[in-house]
Design a protein around this nucleic acid. Structure first.
Length: 434
RNA sequence: GGGGGCGUGGUGUAGCUGGUUAACACGCGGCCCUGUCAAGGCCGAGACCGCGGGUUCGAACCCCGUCGCUCCCGCCA
């Protein structure tokens, strides 16, 4: 009995008797000649069968797990040019119920809520597999690029004793009788680790107890975090972000198959050698003058403003990405480093991707006294940040970092209308399962 | 915390200026077909139109309530 052959290896096995295993993806019965499509992790294989050869499938449904033994034949009319003939089928695990989806349909005709209810099966859709594979490549690119820049990967706790930023928006849990929280961000830990490795990154979920129900929020998402020491200012961090984004796109480009690329109708984004940037107040002036949207003086950008800035970047600079540095301090967390020119504004930035906020980053405070002052200004008790602040008493270099929302990156890249298509089993305001 | 939209066979939708056999596509079952590839053709099963109440001679279609889903704003990745 030959070893298992994969769909992708068919070409190399012409003329040989092979054995494939996978799922019954489709069965086109047409009398004397029938076509059976088997799906495995590498793709699809067509097998030609006589009525007698598929008799065993009587009463069975799609997604039945099968073994097909057959002879590989080069056949011009077969998809891909190769197919199996003279087959012998063996049922590995029969399916008798009708699946909630028909995966072989060209059109993806499932609504998001129905899809999510049946995501345990729905993720088998070729389109979903393509999305998830792309997400994996994005993360691989993130890791690869940062490692090449001298960053060390770290793993920080997700159960924490105090809230990172405001105290609101955290999930509280019962930790052996005392209150604990799910980490909203690895912020403190990655800063601490700058004192150890200078440059660190982490790929991990973060938890946000925000009661939002929008196409771009989920309550648990994958945050691609990085933090680096010995920087000049936030522009040093922006340079790193540019390199990382480019590395992620490059890795996706290298790994994606032509089939997946077509399936997703993937359009690689326009990313010039230097990603354009526009200062926060200038961005507000610009969208007022250019698009008549008045957000001047407002401390934050609304989605509408981000879309306008994204449009401007595309029209003026041919870029799907645009940095907006210089957000007002009032809207940024206490550890944010103020601008040396105007302390009302910060050395922090957002990166917009096709008009959506994708990355937030910036320079952090690095002197102990500055932290104490910042915490007092924000009316936070210094005491509860004591352990976090300890590292700043023993020498921290000027540093900064950023966080990329993976789901948003992939959703924007694939032009999906909701990040939940990208999130394997999304946790949202009213969905805790599957 | 505010605001909008939707809720029709298993799925995705049409019907919604009220009129009584609720339509289409996919899926499902049967039959036909020796080259399909979103196979095709014919036949068939399957929804009393989220739920409750109201208006009316008559409601999937109008009104009220309720539940569910979804999206937007606040926030943010």
């Amino acid at each position: 009995m030959p070893e298992r052959t994969l769909a992708s290896e068919l070409k190399a096995s012409v003329g040989r008797r092979v054995r494939l295993q996978g799922w019954l993806h489709n069965l086109r019965k047409q009398g004397k000649v029938n076509f059976l499509i088997l799906r495995d992790r590498t793709g699809f294989v067509q097998a030609v069968a006589s009525p007698g050869e598929i008799e065993i499938l009587q009463g069975l449904q799609m997604e039945t797990v099968l073994e097909i033994e057959g002879t590989v034949v080069e056949a011009a009319p077969a998809p891909g040019g190769f197919e199996l003939q003279n087959i012998v089928l063996k049922i590995i695990n029969p399916v008798t119920d009708v699946a909630p989806f028909s995966f072989h349909q060209k059109e993806f005709n499932a609504s998001l809520p129905y899809f999510l209810d049946h995501a345990a099966v729905g993720q088998r859709f070729p389109r979903q597999r393509a999305i998830l594979k792309l997400a994996a490549s994005a993360v691989e690119g993130f890791r690869k690029t940062l490692r090449s820049l001298g960053f060390t990967e770290i793993f920080t706790p997700k159960i924490v004793g105090s809230a990172t930023e405001s105290g609101a928006n955290v999930f509280q849990i019962d930790y052996f009788g005392q209150p604990a929280y799910l980490a909203q961000s690895p912020q403190f830990y990655k800063q601490i680790m700058v004192g150890v490795f200078e440059r660190v990154f982490e790929v991990a979920p973060v938890f946000r107890a925000e009661k939002f129900d929008t196409a771009r929020h989920v309550n648990e998402y994958l945050s691609l975090d990085a933090e680096m020491g010995f920087i000049e200012n936030h522009f040093s961090v922006m340079d790193a972000v540019s390199t990382v984004i480019r590395g992620m796109l490059q890795c996706i480009r290298e790994n994606i198959s032509d089939e997946d690329r077509q399936l997703l109708e993937l359009e690689f984004p326009a990313i010039p050698d230097s990603i354009p940037w526009i200062y926060y107040p200038e961005a507000q002036e610009m969208i007022f003058k250019r698009y008549g949207i008045d957000a001047r003086g407002e401390p934050d950008l609304a989605p509408e403003h981000e879309k306008a800035i994204g449009r401007w970047a595309k029209e003026e600079h041919g870029s799907d990405f645009v940095f907006v540095p210089g957000y007002p301090m009032v809207k940024r967390p206490f550890y944010t480093h103020p601008s040396s020119e105007d302390p009302r504004f910060s050395n922090s930035f957002d990166l917009l991707f096709r008009g959506m906020e994708l990355v937030t980053g910036g320079q952090r405070l690095h002197r102990y006294d500055d932290y104490v002052a910042a915490l007092e200004r924000a009316h936070y008790p210094v005491e509860s940040f004591k352990e976090y602040l300890e590292c700043f008493r023993f020498g921290m270099p000027p540093h900064g970092g950023f966080a990329i929302g993976l789901e948003r990156f992939v959703a924007q890249l694939c032009r999906l209308d909701n990040v939940k298509w990208v999130t394997l089993f999304p946790r949202d305001i009213n969905r805790l399962r599957p």
